[in-house]
Simulated assay, not measured.
Amino acid sequence: MKNLLVVALMMSGFAFGQVKKDTLEKEYKLEVAPYKAEKKQKPYPLSKKGQVFVFYGWNRGAYGNSDIHFSGNGYDFQLNNVSARDKPTKFGIVYFDPTWFTVTQYNFRIGYFIKDNLAIVLGVDHMKYVMKQNQTVGFSGYISDPKYAGMVQNGQVDLSDTQFLTFEHTDGLNYENLGLEKYKNLIHKKNIDLVWSYGAGIGVMFPKSNIKLFGNERSDRFHVAGMGTDLRSSLNLVFWKNWMIRAEAKAGYINMWDIKTTLNNKPDKARQDFVFGQILAGIGYTFNTKKYN
């Protein structure tokens, strides 16, 4: 009986020791298991600090009526409530030929996300502004030249024959602007994202104004003429992670106090201010400046 008891104790001790050994080995393996870094997920497009996008598109514009004040040697007058329109180019190869891109009413943007969902955006809005020729407008002021003073009848002047004035910013009404835009992801699918943005911008007006006043040689040159500001909102459809279709609407205010009207730098000039609206659409590309697994 004693022998059986000794054998039983020896076997139980062996079994207990084996279990303890197995447990220690498992714990040791857990302790020395290699550390696996958490995999970083690629962020949504148009959302993370460090992301960049570029965009190119085309616009249509609308302008509020404005009072245009002209001053120079022998004249100082104002045309009241002058109406204008944009000048879209007929659709064709000119929209895609890079050697002719300035002919169209185009927009360019480059944006950088300074914070998550917040981007600073540098833009060029190449709009076109054409005074409607077939209109009669109010007149106040004086003109010393009897020929052109005689065109004023009962406080109004008829512009339709082009002899008194032709007035355009068609090369163009260039708004060089810096904006701040907030972005929000509305839809996130495997290969499709829909992102909404809103913001505001401010910038300088750098028009090439085509103006012919009183039969003078046409003034046609680039010149910093004033400033503009705007509010904007856009929808951005991002597909295949990087490509983007953007549709944007904006409304703003333009004040140009130094428009060159003749080839004489001084004192001939005009000034005007007006509100504007713009819709635009085009294609872009978005990418990360940081690496993600």
Results as ranks from 00 to 15, higher is better:
G138S: 10
G138V: 08
F139W: 01
F139P: 02
F139M: 02
F139Q: 04
F139N: 00
S140D: 12
S140H: 10
G141W: 02
G141A: 07
G141P: 10
Y142G: 01
I143H: 01
S144M: 03
S144K: 13
S144F: 03
D145C: 01
D145K: 00
D145R: 00
D145E: 04
P146C: 05
K147C: 00
K147H: 04
Y148C: 05
A149L: 02
G150C: 02
G150R: 02
M151R: 09
M151G: 01
M151Y: 07
M151P: 07
V152C: 01
V152Q: 01
V152W: 00
V152D: 00
Q153K: 13
Q153P: 00
Q153Y: 01
Q153V: 14
Q153F: 03
Q153T: 13
N154M: 00
N154W: 00
G155N: 05
G155C: 05
Q156Y: 00
Q156C: 00
Q156G: 00
Q156S: 08
V157D: 04
V157E: 02
V157G: 06
V157Q: 05
V157K: 06
V157S: 08
D158R: 03
L159Y: 03
L159P: 07
L159W: 01
S160D: 10
S160Q: 11
S160F: 03
D161P: 06
D161L: 04
T162K: 15
T162I: 02
T162S: 12
Q163F: 03
F164Y: 12
F164Q: 08
F164K: 08
F164R: 05
F164L: 07
L165S: 09
L165K: 08
T166I: 11
F167R: 08
F167T: 06
F167G: 05
F167Q: 07
F167D: 07
F167A: 10
E168Q: 15
E168Y: 13
H169I: 02
H169A: 14
H169M: 13
H169W: 04
T170L: 07
T170E: 12
T170N: 15
D171H: 13
G172Q: 09
L173E: 10
L173T: 08
L173F: 15
L173N: 15
L173R: 11
N174S: 12
N174G: 08
N174V: 13
N174Q: 12
N174M: 12
Y175G: 09
Y175W: 13
Y175H: 14
E176K: 09
E176Q: 10
N177D: 14
N177G: 11
L178V: 15
L178Y: 09
G179I: 02
G179A: 15
G179W: 03
G179V: 06
L180P: 12
L180E: 07
L180S: 10
E181S: 10
E181Q: 15
E181F: 14
E181L: 14
K182I: 12
K182F: 15
K182D: 05
K182G: 12
Y183T: 09
Y183L: 08
Y183F: 15
Y183E: 09
K184S: 13
K184L: 10
K184M: 13
N185A: 14
L186W: 07
L186V: 13
L186R: 08
I187K: 11
I187Q: 07
I187D: 05
I187H: 07
H188L: 01
H188Y: 10
